[in-house]
Design a protein around this nucleic acid. Structure first.
Lengths: 132, 132
DNA sequence: CAGGATCCTGATTGATACTG
DNA sequence: CAGTATCAATCAGGATCCTG
């Protein structure tokens, strides 16, 4: 899809812009699901079972946990191991690719640390400038 | 909110995990809106007027362009300059904070370049392993 | 234990028409 | 030109109940 170099310089054409953006947007779409980031960060602590994750991510419904894990598994970010015993046991862990997400996440984290305050200020300014 | 160091090591506790993740998720939520990334990348080419943006981002409705720009403005990522003439002229450009997004975006971009193929393969495997 | 299947609701998106 | 307003459609998320 993207046949480009890096994003260290702005894209110059519409085609270039979209060819860069499309896979990134797919990517962002996945990791910015309501719960994906929580799940990924929880799994950065190490492999975990379904109910461990659910306890840790207080507030997540079992449906959304299942769904989030399935999507991440589908993308090869999470690996799922089923042990066919009774009661069933299923373990989840990050794949190598999933662990490599630490770089992008760290970059976003750094941005939020640097600019979090300014975003808050900008929102406050916007609120007063416009209707409350 | 986040009082942590960096994300270079996995979060260890639930509180730590969420205190890191919450502002990041807000952040991701914004830049992963259906159109936000396109708009940001378009503006990385330099300041542009509303209709320039609209022509460039083929397929975006004028409603969504307006809305996306407003959100980015609210967060202080985009600056909006109104010239009160007839017909009206409005220019948009990235703020310094917006330009700093290049680092996180480059990191994500690098990830998609490194792993795009493997994601595609993972999806294909998942498709055959499960119901088509 | 680890889900699958339903149903429901609010938010997101888009198409269309109108305006200063 | 650069929007606002309105309505219709889609969708993601959640609550609930059921099962191997």
């Amino acid at each position: 899809m993207a046949t480009l170099g890096t994003l260290t310089k702005p894209p110059k054409t519409y085609e270039e812009c979209t060819s860069v953006a499309v896979p990134m947007i797919e990517m962002l779409g996945r990791i910015s699901g309501r719960w994906s980031l929580y799940v990924i960060m929880a799994l950065m602590q190490g492999p975990q079972r379904f109910s461990q994750l659910r306890r840790q991510l207080q507030g997540i419904s079992q449906k959304m946990l299942t769904q989030t894990l399935r999507e991440l598994e589908e993308d090869g970010i999470v690996h799922r191991t089923v042990t066919p015993i009774i009661p069933p046991r299923v373990d989840y862990e990050l794949t190598a690719m999933g662990r490599e997400l630490q770089d992008p996440l760290a970059a976003i984290h750094a941005w939020t640390l640097r600019n979090g305050r300014e975003v808050a200020e900008a929102r406050a300014r916007y609120a007063v400038a416009h209707g409350k």
